[in-house]
Amino acid sequence: MVLIYFAGIDLGSTMTKVVIVDEDDQTKASVVYHTGAEHRRLANRVMEESLAKANLSIDDISFVMATGYGRINVPFADRQITELSCHARGVASFFPHVRLAIDIGGQDAKGLKTRDGKLLDFVMSDKCAAGTGRFLEVISAALGLKIEDLGDISLRSTQKVSVSSTCTVFAQQEVVNHLSEGVPLEDVIAGLHDAIAGRSARMVNRLKVEPDVVFTGGVAKNVGVVKALEENLGCPVLVPEEPLLSGAIGAALLGKEHVLKALARGETIQTGKRRLEEATFFK
């Protein structure tokens, strides 16, 4: 068997990501899509697009590893593994000395204690999406701002306000109150970022913060939250060039390592059905 390409698909609650890597761990293609309500029908389309980008067919892929909360809805995956292990592996490919990874995605926040790409321990936020990307989406929509502008606006702040709640509903009320009192917008947004960062910092403190600390997930694209996280943790925070892809890259790399280990043991690789089609079992 010739080992050439490995795919990782990360079906997150908000974004779906596919990465294809080659045998030298080099990324050949990556695609990011909004997951949306029809996420079970999306996996195949995102995979097809990433294969087209890499100029490959599904038969060229030696192993497909699925991760993320929708990982069981990927009909062409050979194996599923949690996003916890995948993020730990993925961030180590960008920053080999990472000890703590913080991932704030669309619906939850995770803290991962890791060494050499292996997951040692983790904490996760509760089922409520307080203090996650969803929180920023709702607040930015309420303020009539683009979510991608929040970070830059907050950097203009000279006196951030205190936002006591990360509950989306209560925080929205607090924001309205602050604005009605004449507090500048940038100070309010900086306060919101501080509330998110503080919540995640308190959560990961249970894992004992140790550098390198790496920040991933969609919220890591917000420079205001990165700055607030550094202030709350009291140490520098590293952010990969594309913070959304660490789970998918980790999945692809874990797939490759799974294959290599199996081959070293003289085992045949068990791969699933390679049907690039919608998941239908839920109908």
């Binding site: 909360y69 593994i81 949690t82 996003e83 916890l84 292990s85 997951l119 040692l120 321990d121 983790f122 996760m124 089922k127």
Partner: peptide, 16 residues
């Protein structure tokens, strides 16, 4: 229904 989100935690724990 609220048990479903715990699945990732349990699976992550098993992976460790």
């Amino acid at each position: 229904g609220a048990l479903a989100p715990l699945r990732t935690r349990v699976q992550g724990f098993l992976e460790i």
